[in-house]
Structure formats: structure tokens, C-alpha cells
Design a protein around this nucleic acid. Structure first.
Length: 258
DNA sequence: CTCGACTCCTGTTAGC
DNA sequence: TGCTAACAGGAGTCGA
């Protein structure tokens, strides 16, 4: 699913639109418009041009001369820009691109469209979204800040990592892969980590994201092949635990994750 | 305030 | 073969 890794690929693709004039807005699905945004309100974008792109966690921001447009992809949202498909394979989503799954599009002068295809409609589009409640991006957070935030949370580690207000960009697959690599039990209270464990979490969060980015997506982790019922830990062969933590299916190794 | 439970969306897949 | 029900998770809301 689109986590930080996929959204960063989307952002790089969206960078093609910088400097191009917005000729049309296509918003056929009112459900997809969030935060009071309407198709009428989106018309203010027409005539302006894109000045830059940003990403905070899983939120992609298109800065334009008229307003900032926030794009969210939920679990099955894909971005197509000028005919390019940044992420070919999206875990848990269909490989096909059906016209009825087009939830939003921008038409550009001298460039193809920017299109959001989202079968399950869990993503959304919002004008000038509030970003003040998002935590630091998972790739940018410092060890000092991570440690401080861990110490302030009694939530299970897994829930801590999934909470976009604490750390932005981590979804279910990055969370499980990171904790598996770090050897930390997803059910551990966040504030129970000592300094060394905090360091491990910080290091493996960055390394896991970097490695999976290089491989091409959040589904390319070493744990991922074992994210099925009854599978064994790829590291030590122990039967993996399958639990619901933080409201999400969580796989972990009872032997090396403590 | 913090945290967990619940809800929404719908294509895919497992199972009868 | 054809159908149903479970499942997937990002994000917001609500209540203890």
C-alpha cells in the first residue's frame, strides 16, 4: 500500500508538473474531496501553475500559485503523471487501471494529466490541508526527537509507529519490517525502550525505508514473504505470531523480537 | 490528554 | 462453477 516509500515515488513523478499551467480540474467523486473541499472550490487552481511539490509522511502536497493541493492515497491509491506509472505493483490493490477508478485529475498545458486511480476510495484530495498535526517525517526524524516522542507515549510500539501525529509516513508494512529488523516486540510500550533500543529503532527505521525504497516498495521487506498465516520467521525459523495491534494485523517473531 | 474500538471504502480471495 | 463472507489498512471519530 502507499506508505512513505510509494508517496515519495509519486512526489518525484509529480515534479514533472512543476512550471506547467493547470488547464483543467477533474473531480468526479465528491466523496474523494475532503475537509470541505468542493469541485467548485478546486476551480481556483485553473489558470495557475505548479510551483513545487512536497511530501510530509504519506501526504503529497502540490504547491500552486493559487493554493496548495493535498493528495492522500489511502491504501489503494495510485498516481499517474503524464502517462508515467511511478509504482507498478501496489500491495493489496489491483494491478489494473479501470476508468471508473479515476477519482481525481489535473489537466496541464503542454503535459499529460496527473491522475489519482483509487479502487477503494480510501484516499482523498484537499485544498490547503492542515499539516500542523503531522509528526516529523520518518526519514527525517532525529534520534533525539524519536527518543523524546517514545518517552511520551504509553501506546504499543506498533501503534506508536502507525500514529501519523507522532511519526509521519509509516504504514503497516514499514512498521512490521522495522520492528522485525530492530528485534523489538510490537506490543512493547513505547516508553519502555532504553537508550540502546531507541537507537536500534531509529537506525532500523531509516535502513528499512531506504532498503525497501531501493527495492521498489513497502512490500519488498525481508519479513514480507512471511506475512501469511502459519509462516516461519525468515531470520530464525520460529513460527511467527499473528496479532492485531494498533488495530492492524501484526506479524512478529516471538524469539528475536523482545 | 491518551489510547483502543469502531467505521468507512470495495476489489480480491478463500472456502463452501 | 458460482456464490458468500472474510480480509486488507489509512484515517477520522468517539468514548472510556
Amino acid at each position: 500500500m502507499p506508505e512513505l516509500i510509494e508517496v515519495e515515488a509519486y512526489r518525484e513523478a509529480a515534479d514533472r508538473t512543476v512550471g506547467h499551467r493547470i488547464a483543467a480540474v477533474h473531480a468526479p467523486d465528491a466523496w474523494f474531496l475532503k475537509g470541505g473541499t468542493t469541485a467548485e472550490a478546486l476551480e481556483i487552481l485553473v489558470g495557475g501553475h505548479v510551483t513545487g511539490t512536497r511530501r510530509i509522511g504519506k501526504l503529497l502536497l502540490l504547491d500552486t500559485t493559487a493554493a496548495t493541493l493535498g493528495l492522500r492515497f489511502g491504501m489503494t491509491g495510485r498516481l499517474l503523471v503524464d502517462g508515467h506509472v511511478p509504482i507498478e505493483k501496489l500491495e493489496y490493490s489491483s494491478q489494473r487501471i479501470e476508468p471508473q477508478w479515476i477519482r481525481f485529475a489535473l489537466g496541464f498545458e503542454d503535459l499529460g494529466d496527473l491522475v489519482i486511480v483509487d479502487p477503494r476510495r480510501l484516499g482523498g484530495v484537499e485544498l490547503d490541508p492542515d499539516t500542523s498535526r503531522l509528526g516529523p517525517d520518518a526519514l527525517a526524524v532525529s534520534l533525539r526527537e524519536l527518543r523524546a516522542r517514545l518517552a511520551a507515549s504509553r501506546a504499543p510500539l506498533k501503534a506508536f509507529l502507525l500514529d501519523q501525529q507522532r511519526i509521519a509516513g509509516v504504514g503497516n508494512l514499514i512498521a512490521d519490517e522495522t520492528l522485525w529488523r530492530a528485534g523489538l516486540d510490537p506490543a512493547r510500550r513505547a516508553d519502555s525502550l532504553d537508550e540502546e533500543e531507541s537507537r536500534l529503532l531509529h537506525r532500523h527505521l531509516r535502513q528499512a525505508i531506504r532498503t525497501m525504497s531501493r527495492r521498489g516498495g513497502s512490500h519488498t521487506g525481508d519479513l514480507h514473504v512471511a506475512r501469511v498465516r502459519g509462516a516461519a520467521c525468515p531470520r530464525d525459523g520460529a513460527p511467527l505470531l499473528r496479532r492485531t495491534i494498533g488495530g492492524r494485523t501484526t506479524y512478529s517473531c516471538p524469539v528475536h523480537q523482545r
